[in-house]
Write a protein that binds this DNA or RNA. Structure first.
Lengths: 230, 230
DNA sequence: GCCGATCCTTACGCGATCCTTACGGCCGCG
DNA sequence: CGCGGCCGTAAGGATCGCGTAAGGATCGGC
């Protein structure tokens, strides 16, 4: 957990030390607080990613600490306690804690629970891909497999579309015969150039008004094809 | 927790029943799944706010179920298990679970932990996932698993609904065969395209009046299906 | 343990799509 | 002028993918 900052709140120096060593060994960054007042202040000034809070503090009730932090922060709080009564757990969790671990605890489990809490913090990157290509009058919607030329919808078959999409992704550049063949037909057919002649012809027939002068797909003799930029 | 939807995954009917009663008494909304594959499909089609997952399922390893859901969703997952070994807890948490509760458990603690998980979910960048979808004359209630076409109620089976829900969630866009198969049937069947043919056919028979001209689900030969936007 | 609902499997007809082959035009070169 | 490489067009047959139907297996509830 490279650089995840953890605030440890416990009044026993021994436990703080134990936790610090274990956490730092696993790549966490550690800051400490001893009393409840201090904990609230540190949570504000240090801006930690996680708080580990012992419930048995001398100056404040642990649940009160949780409540104070929750007044302004949603930082994940993992509560430690020697008390295993169910009512205690419920009270702490309902006060705003995110997890409750009974002492004594296994350090491996604690670390796993910290990782689980840290995981949530990341803003999930959406699977947003462009899914649309526009080259002059030619508009290709990859998500819907639709093609429009100057607004008019054009119906392409599967291979025709795959071929045109490959050209559109490299618009302006030459795409060689083997590149096209590998992408659309697979490596086994990378020498069957005649496939391309037939299908390029069919695409042109559907896109162009004047088949004699193709506006979009140009031929590079002996090399490949390219989609003309506007 | 007014209306928080919980997906319960457990193979024992007794436990499902126990959890359902307890959760509904506290204002949760409950849906159930019995096997792992079903669980993954439900997580997709029902869009629950929390998942409660028993690790001892008959058909899949529990950690595998967690992984499958985590491929695309960040829904909070609370794992139940009879195994209290620390290594088990670590494995489940690192697989992507958010909490781990050992059976037998106190229902009050479980409820408190669910509230803690539900709390986190609120400010999340949820893209306002609606509980209802309307596409032209087609109306899908994801919460009640009800479908209406032009006001007329249509009864769909589980798999039929899961399939339609997956399409509706991506309405207008093409969903490929492997995507549909993975979500509804599981990765092991991502090549069984004939499943789709059968079930798409059955859905169309129930939605459309004229089976020859499907109004809603369109086919992209060799690629997938899509739900037509009005 | 039984029963109804649901799911899986298989087979078959049909249409769209793809592959194959053939032919004619254009060009540069001998 | 003949020839061969490269390209584009056309058309028929082979193949693929889709939809439908039906019987058997399996599941979940009682």
């Amino acid at each position: 957990m490279d650089g995840t900052k953890v605030l440890i709140v416990d009044d026993e120096a021994q436990i703080r030390r134990f936790l610090r060593i274990a956490l730092e060994a696993h790549g966490f960054q550690v800051v400490e607080a001893i009393r409840g007042q201090d904990a609230v202040a540190r949570a504000a000034s240090e801006n930690p990613d996680i708080v580990i809070l012992d419930l048995g503090l001398p100056d404040m009730d642990g649940k009160a600490v949780v409540g104070r932090i929750r007044e302004w922060s949603s930082v994940p709080i993992l509560v430690l306690s020697v008390r295993q009564a169910e009512a205690e757990k419920v009270a702490a969790l309902d006060a705003g804690a995110d997890d409750y671990v009974v002492k004594p605890f296994g350090i491996a489990e604690l670390l796993a629970r910290l990782r689980a809490l840290a995981r949530k913090r990341r803003p999930d990157a959406g699977p947003a891909e462009p899914a649309e290509l526009t080259v002059g009058e030619l508009h290709i919607d990859l998500a819907r497999r639709e093609v429009r030329v100057a607004g008019r919808a054009v119906r392409l078959t599967r291979k025709e579309f795959d071929l045109l999409a490959m050209l559109a992704r490299n618009a302006g550049r030459i795409v060689t015969h083997p590149q096209l063949l590998r992408q659309v037909w697979g490596r086994a057919h990378e020498n069957d150039v005649h496939y391309l002649r037939v299908f390029i012809g069919q695409i042109r027939e559907k896109l162009d008004d004047d088949p004699a002068h193709p506006r979009f797909i140009l031929n590079e003799p002996g090399v490949g094809y390219r989609l003309l930029l506007p």
